[in-house]
Simulated scan of single mutants.
Amino acid sequence: MKIDSHQHFWKYDPIRDSWIDDSMETIRRDFFPDDLEDLLEQNGIDGCVAVQADQSEKETEFLLHLANENNFIKGVVGWVDLCASNVSERLGHFSKNPYFKGVRHILQAENNDFMLQKSFQHGIEQLKQFDLSYDILVFPNQLKNSIALVERFPEQRFVLDHLGKPNIKDGEMDNWRADIEALAKHPNVYCKLSGMVTEADWNNWKPHDIYPYIEKIINAFGTDRIMYGSDWPVCLLAGKYDEVFGIVKEYIRQLTKDEQNNILGGAAASFYKLSA
């Protein structure tokens, strides 16, 4: 089963979605399952994981509704307030839906120490009882605290979104690589090959700008803890779906068939516990 482990849906709201600024006019509209299904089929992908883009339970309900209505949406990574005193109750509520697979908070929008505060870590601690994963969305300067976070929860499943958002556009790698290698030493942490074209030069990137970052991720995590994700429709800012998928597909041709299958679906299915 081939899986796109990271994509989004939304009904565009100019106030809620103010992060979509003037430079992002391409994605300043609605994106629903009908817009994605044909793209997945054309690229031989069997299903996807829908990830939250808004910090609200309404967003989680919206994504779960879409998953209930569309068989190719295999799982949802939603949002629950992990700092709330009733976090366990809310996680229990959403966990009644079999498509609810994990939680994400947009840590890149918080100060660096947010993830280390007691209330947030209390929320992370509650995930395991519901067998839920956690998606880490951070900038490179937040990776050290991400390492500290995962060290405190060795039994919790974590996945790093977008490679930790390295500065591909300027070819920066050294500090990012050292932190990635430290993070990857924790066997409960996976990584998504996603969000790469939007960290490159949107209008002038070439696959060879991105390949060195994929190489470092594979060297650090191995192929059994890496999963492909398109980051559609955000990826449309810098490339079409088939171009984004093509970067990963072309690079991993050098790997064995089993290793390719892990990256293109096996790791995602295992991590998120997806059903066909």
Score class of each variant (00 low, 15 high):
Lys101Cys: 01
Leu66Met: 10
Asn188Glu: 03
Trp202Asp: 03
Gly44Phe: 09
Leu137Gln: 00
Val87Phe: 00
Leu163Asp: 03
Lys118Met: 02
Thr198Ala: 04
Lys257Ser: 14
Gln121Phe: 06
Glu37Gly: 08
Ile168Arg: 07
Ile15Pro: 10
Gln42His: 12
Val49Ile: 07
Leu264Val: 10
Gly246Leu: 07
Glu69Asp: 12
Val159Ser: 13
Ile180Phe: 01
Gly171Cys: 11
Leu237Trp: 06
Asp161Ile: 02
Glu215Tyr: 15
Ile136Tyr: 05
Gly78Arg: 01
Gln260Gly: 04
Lys165Phe: 06
Tyr134Glu: 08
Asn86Ala: 09
Ile263Asn: 00
Phe32Asp: 14
Ala53Glu: 03
Gln126Phe: 12
Asn175Phe: 08
Val159Cys: 00
Pro98Met: 12
Ile27Cys: 13
Asp54Met: 01
Ala267His: 13
Arg16Pro: 01
Val150Leu: 05
Ile247Asn: 04
Arg29Met: 15
Leu264Thr: 08
Asn111Met: 10
Ile263Lys: 00
Gln7His: 14
Pro207Trp: 13
Lys169Pro: 00
Met196Tyr: 06
Gly171Thr: 10
Gln121Thr: 01
Cys83Met: 12
Glu57Thr: 05
Ala67Arg: 02
Ser95His: 13
Ser5Trp: 02
Lys185Tyr: 07
Leu160Tyr: 03
Met115Lys: 04
His105Gln: 13
Tyr99Asn: 09
Ala67Lys: 09
Lys165Asp: 08
Asn70Val: 10
Leu91Arg: 01
Leu127His: 03
His208Met: 15
Asp209Trp: 08
Glu25Thr: 12
Ala267Phe: 03
Ala184Trp: 00
Glu25Ala: 15
Gly222Cys: 08
Gly92Leu: 11
Ala53Val: 09
Val49Phe: 04
Thr256His: 13
Arg253Ala: 07
Tyr190Asp: 02
Lys192His: 12
Gln55Thr: 06
Glu25Arg: 08
Asp113Phe: 02
Thr26Val: 15
Ala238Ser: 11
Ile147Ala: 05
Glu59Lys: 06
Lys2Val: 15
Asp30Thr: 14
Leu107Asn: 00
Gln52Val: 07
Gln117Cys: 13
Asn86Pro: 04
Tyr190Val: 11
